[in-house]
Amino acid sequence: MNSTVMKKSMYWFAVPALLFYLTFWIFPILRLFQYSITDYNGYAQAYSYIGLDNYKELFRGDILGVSLKNTLIYTLVTVIAGNIIGLAMALLLNMKIRGTGIYRSLAYIPTLFSAIVVGFLWSYVYMPDYGLISSFLDKLGIANELNFLGDYSTALYSIILVEIWKTIGTTMIIFLAGLQTVPNDLLEAGRIDGCGPWRLLRHVKIPLLATAITINVTLSLINGLKAFDFPFIMTNGGPGTATNTLIFSIYKMAFTEQLFGKASALGVISFAVIIIITAVFVLKMNKREVSA
């Protein structure tokens, strides 16, 4: 078999992956766009094309603004707090201390649990009167009427804390892997030049962690923008619309209110928002990584 025939035959190996990509990625997206301009309710065979009415209704109503605001807050706090805490844990566990392996394993354990398990676990932790936090405060003799998940002002941030607790192990491991690639000779040279721990972190370690930072920020960004599990499991979007995220609102609109066409329109808007935000972040992080 000559090289030309071999090259042509090699393209056939890409066909299964291409078919999979078209079937489970491109086709659903095209159908999403199609349903977004209809009054489809999710189960009826017949539906009508109504143009951009679904989009107009979403932009006139409150649900898009509330869901987008909650999602952006969720994402911003998850990205910033999650990465700062993950980096701090990685720095601590990168030190030569006794039992480091055990501490690393304990820090990673939450990542191994499913979102359902974590959601129900933290629901009991947050439970007023009988929850772990309330019981602990009662034992200390501190009177409290805390209702973390039932208070409009604290519900979203309580769920964000659970998201960070669940994903912090992965963030820490990636930072830890990056720290272990930092050359000791470079650190020693910095110490000889009079650099303290803070200056070494700022001017040596963090620049060399550019790739790890890019990975962790991207993962945190994606987790935040597609937030659904914990709002669904712990609060069902409540109280009111306090924990309504974009993905949760799509689910509720499609499967509870049976407004599949409108939900598809919200899905298109969410898709655009996620693509734009992710692209901007990745481009900025890649530029920072190159300059570092």
Score class of each variant (00 low, 15 high):
Asp53Ile: 08
Pro28Val: 04
Leu208Ala: 11
Ala14Asn: 10
Gly150Thr: 00
Ile250Phe: 11
Leu179Trp: 00
Gly194His: 05
Phe120His: 14
Ile102Arg: 07
Ser9Gly: 03
Ile84Pro: 10
Ala44Asp: 15
Cys195Ile: 08
Leu187Thr: 03
Ser9Trp: 04
Leu112Glu: 08
Val66Trp: 09
Gly240Arg: 01
Phe20Ser: 06
Thr4Arg: 09
Ser105His: 10
Met127His: 08
Glu57Val: 09
Gly178Trp: 02
Gly131Thr: 13
Asn286His: 02
Tyr47Phe: 15
Ala88Gln: 11
Gly238Cys: 05
Tyr40Arg: 02
Thr214Lys: 13
Tyr21Gln: 05
Leu87Trp: 12
Trp25Asn: 04
Thr100His: 10
Gly150Val: 00
Val125Leu: 06
Leu221Cys: 14
Pro183Leu: 07
Glu145Ile: 10
Glu57Met: 13
Gly131Lys: 09
Asn236His: 05
Leu91Ile: 05
Leu200Phe: 08
Ser135Ile: 09
Ser48Asn: 04
Pro28Cys: 02
Pro16Tyr: 06
Val125Lys: 03
Ala90Lys: 11
Thr278Asn: 11
Leu208Thr: 11
Ile274Phe: 11
Leu186Cys: 03
Ser158His: 01
Leu176Asp: 07
Val204Leu: 15
Gly196Val: 12
Ser67Leu: 06
Leu106Asp: 10
Leu187Arg: 04
Ala14Lys: 05
Pro128Asp: 11
Ala155Leu: 00
Val15Glu: 04
Val273His: 10
Gly42Phe: 01
Asn144Thr: 08
Tyr157Pro: 02
Asn144Asp: 08
Leu187His: 02
Phe136Asn: 08
Asp138Gly: 15
Ile275Val: 15
Met89Val: 14
Thr235Lys: 03
Leu52Lys: 07
Glu289Val: 00
Val117Ser: 12
Leu132Asp: 10
Gly86Asp: 12
Gln258Tyr: 14
Asn94Gln: 06
Leu187Val: 02
Phe13Glu: 05
Leu76Met: 09
Ser291Asp: 00
Ile102Cys: 08
Lys166Trp: 05
Leu92Gln: 08
Lys284Phe: 02
Asp138Tyr: 13
Ile80Val: 15
Trp25Val: 06
Gly86Leu: 14
Glu289Trp: 01
Ile142Val: 14
Thr100Glu: 12
Ile213Leu: 15
Leu76His: 04
Leu200Glu: 15
Gly267Glu: 03
Leu201Gly: 14
Ala189Leu: 04
Gly51His: 02
Phe136Trp: 14
Gly178Asp: 02
Phe281Met: 13
Leu121Thr: 07
Glu257Tyr: 14
Tyr47Thr: 05
Ala90Cys: 13
Gly169Phe: 07
Leu132Ser: 09
Asp185Gln: 07
Thr4His: 03
Lys166Asp: 01
Gly119His: 04
Asn216Leu: 12
Thr78Val: 14
Asn144Tyr: 06
Pro28Met: 02
Gly169Ile: 01
Met127Cys: 08
Thr245Ala: 06
Thr170Tyr: 07
Asn236Trp: 00
Leu121Ala: 15
Ile168Gly: 01
Phe120Ala: 11
Thr241Gly: 01
Cys195Pro: 07
Ser67Phe: 04
Ser48Lys: 06
Glu57Phe: 10
Asp193Ser: 12
Asp229Val: 09
Ser249Gln: 09
Asn286Tyr: 03
Ala177Leu: 00
Asn286Met: 02
Leu161Met: 03
Trp165Lys: 00
Phe228Asp: 08
Leu161Lys: 00
Ile116Thr: 15
Leu91Trp: 05
His203Trp: 13
Tyr152Gly: 00
Gly190Trp: 11
